[in-house]
């Protein structure tokens, strides 16, 4: 009897999972993204974190499929660990399912909203919400909840309707306030006890302007 129940449950689960298709629009976008073998681009970075004052920085980036992104700069640059995966290669690397969340209107355009839920334990995020521009076959916004590093959002703008990679990306992320060892503090440093008490994670933004794309597509 128990065996029969287990068998029935297994069949039910298998049918349920099979019913969770991957969104066809996302698959189209993924195929388009997968066609990028590598690209080089010039980055302009503006950091917007309440407790960090940093001038605008520039860097060059080099992306190659399935390889870590490389950066080079003459200056000291803080490069966000999250949010530079414009190709969404990392996000869609392991098996996943999608859930259709309908549509949303934003800035006069209608976008499809889907949740991406990984089914492979190796994926480092728990759930992602993507806004898809189905007309131009690209992602315009994503909110990714990671397993270890909190959540972050990416808002992307594109130079024209054909472009697959963004020209402007705003990465919003959570960041804990710096705890400076006392012996490094200058005497001019004020310690605001009230602020320290209220201290929790802060939201930071990094605004990336990307230019001079040199994209190599597979088969080229």
């Amino acid at each position: 009897m128990i065996r029969k129940i287990i068998l029935l449950l297994s069949l039910f689960l298998a049918v349920t999972v099979a019913a969770q298709d991957i969104d066809p629009d996302l698959l189209t976008i993924k195929q388009r993204m997968d066609s990028i073998e590598e690209f080089r681009a010039h980055l302009t970075l503006d950091l917007d974190v309440s407790f960090i004052n940093m001038p605008t920085k520039t860097a060059d980036m080099h992306y190659r499929k399935d390889k870590p992104v490389k950066f080079s700069s003459d200056d000291f640059v803080l490069i966000p660990k999250r949010g530079l995966d414009f190709s969404m290669n990392e996000l869609l690397k392991y098996s996943f399912i999608t859930v259709d969340r309908g549509v949303v209107e934003k800035d006069g355009s209608v976008y499809k909203v889907i949740n991406v839920i990984p089914t492979d334990k190796k994926a480092d995020f728990a759930i992602a919400t993507l806004l898809l521009d189905t007309l131009n076959q690209r992602i315009v916004e994503s909110e990714i909840n990671t397993k270890k590093d909190g959540s972050y959002t990416l808002a992307m703008q594109y130079a024209n309707t054909d472009m697959i990679l963004p020209e402007l990306v705003v990465v919003s992320f959570e960041i804990t306030r710096i705890k400076i060892p006392l012996n490094y503090m200058g005497k001019g440093t004020e310690v605001d006890k009230e602020e320290l008490k209220l201290d929790g994670p802060k939201t930071g933004k990094i605004i990336l302007q990307i230019s001079n794309y040199k994209i190599v597509y597979s088969g080229e």
Binding site: I52, A59, F71, S72, S73, D74, D75, F76, V77, L78, I79, P80, K81, R82, D149, F173, I175, T176, R177, I178, K179, I180, P181, Y184, G204
Partner: peptide
Amino acid sequence: IIDILLDNLKQSFYFEGN
């Protein structure tokens, strides 16, 4: 000294430069 100073930032950023 730099490592201690930037420890919190390491969670969110890579550092390029010296």
